[in-house]
Deep mutational scan, measured.
Amino acid sequence: DTINITLPDGKTLTLTVTPEFTVKELAEEIARRLGLSPEDIKDTHNGKTLDPSLTLAEYGITPGSTITLEIK
């Protein structure tokens, strides 16, 4: 299953994830792909900052969802 990550420059990154991924694991994968530190990444969905300890499923993030990435 894939989700879309909207980057600060407007580009989109597509990642393969499972509903059990935590937001922290997602940030780590994004950081790895972009050459950043996971601590520099802030993920938001529907205007809410995502708690790193919760899973994508707990936020109702499903395949095809879009998450907005902010760099701290």
Score class of each variant (00 low, 15 high):
1 D>L: 15
2 T>L: 07
4 N>T: 11
4 N>Q: 09
5 I>D: 05
7 L>Q: 03
9 D>V: 02
9 D>C: 14
10 G>K: 05
10 G>M: 03
11 K>D: 10
11 K>P: 07
12 T>E: 06
12 T>M: 11
13 L>C: 07
13 L>K: 01
13 L>P: 00
15 L>Q: 02
15 L>F: 04
15 L>Y: 01
16 T>Y: 12
17 V>E: 00
19 P>Y: 03
20 E>P: 02
21 F>T: 15
22 T>P: 01
22 T>M: 02
23 V>F: 14
23 V>H: 01
23 V>G: 02
26 L>R: 00
26 L>V: 04
28 E>I: 10
31 A>M: 08
31 A>Q: 06
31 A>Y: 08
32 R>H: 09
33 R>G: 04
34 L>S: 06
34 L>A: 05
35 G>I: 02
36 L>N: 05
37 S>I: 09
37 S>H: 14
38 P>N: 07
38 P>W: 14
38 P>G: 06
39 E>G: 15
39 E>N: 12
40 D>F: 14
40 D>H: 13
40 D>Q: 12
41 I>L: 13
41 I>W: 09
42 K>M: 15
42 K>D: 07
43 D>Y: 15
45 H>E: 07
45 H>V: 14
46 N>W: 14
47 G>L: 14
47 G>A: 05
47 G>S: 06
47 G>D: 06
48 K>H: 11
49 T>N: 08
49 T>Y: 12
49 T>M: 10
50 L>V: 08
50 L>A: 04
51 D>R: 04
52 P>Q: 14
52 P>S: 15
52 P>F: 12
53 S>C: 10
53 S>G: 09
53 S>H: 10
55 T>N: 03
55 T>F: 02
56 L>E: 00
56 L>F: 01
58 E>R: 01
58 E>T: 02
59 Y>H: 14
59 Y>L: 15
60 G>M: 03
60 G>E: 04
61 I>Q: 01
62 T>Q: 09
62 T>F: 14
62 T>P: 06
63 P>R: 02
65 S>H: 07
65 S>G: 05
66 T>P: 01
67 I>M: 03
67 I>D: 00
68 T>V: 14
70 E>S: 05
70 E>A: 07
70 E>M: 05
70 E>D: 10
71 I>V: 10
72 K>C: 14
72 K>T: 13
